[in-house]
Amino acid sequence: MSSHHFVKDQQEPAVFILDTAELSFETVSPLLEWVPTVLVGQECLENVLSWGIKVDLILATETFQKDNLHLLEEQYPVKFLTASPENTLDEGLQYLLATKHPATHLVGLSHLKHVDLGEKLELFDLTIMDAGWKYYPVKSGKFKKWFAESTIRILGKEGMPVEISNENGKLMLPLVYLTQLEVPEGITEIAASGVIWIGEEVK
């Protein structure tokens, strides 16, 4: 019995691959360790299949589905879900909600799209992986974490005031389109009046 036939109980965050332009298999591989549900948009399907990943759901137009019926056999038990390139993200998230997945990694989604995920954050735990960075939301407005000496990013509503405290002292600043910050080794605390996303470089 091959590993991908384990019963999936939705405990693992699903992996939803929307674009592979700036991704390598090595970046995605750690997310697949516990055989999560894998969704892929049609534009990057060929690349994902070349990595040897077992796919559970392909989001594709009706034309693409008709032209690629062989995938249903080759990738059994894969399923198709009808979606246009414009609504792939929404359709995929609706599917994950309907199948009761509590968490999802959005792989290859532009970090600029974080603004479109507002309502979804109440329903899911979401992370975004984009061009070598992993972003995760802080819904409570308060965040505290130990970092190695590194660069982090903070995304949020432009102009929102954010307070950052660590051994370098305390800093108040308004968020710009993408706020990049050098943090020292140790605990950094961040407080904001609304949802923010913290970005860390994926090594």
Rank of each mutant, 00 (worst) to 15 (best):
L121K: 07
H114N: 07
A131V: 11
D67S: 13
V138W: 03
E91Y: 06
T27I: 14
E26Q: 11
K142P: 02
G141F: 00
G141H: 02
T82H: 11
V28H: 02
V115G: 01
Y135M: 04
W133P: 10
F147S: 00
Q65G: 08
F147V: 02
G132Y: 04
L96G: 00
D56I: 00
L89I: 05
L69S: 14
V38R: 03
W34V: 13
V48I: 01
G118L: 14
W146G: 01
L49D: 02
K79H: 11
Y76G: 05
D125K: 10
L81D: 10
D56A: 01
K54W: 05
S50M: 03
Y136M: 13
K144I: 10
L32N: 08
E33P: 07
S110V: 11
T99G: 08
L93G: 06
I128D: 03
L123A: 14
V138Y: 08
L57R: 15
L45Y: 00
S84F: 12
E43I: 07
L45N: 04
E73R: 14
E74H: 09
T99W: 14
L49P: 05
S84Q: 12
V35L: 07
E33T: 12
E86L: 14
K145V: 04
A83I: 03
L112T: 15
V138N: 05
V115L: 04
P137Q: 04
L23G: 05
D116T: 10
D67F: 10
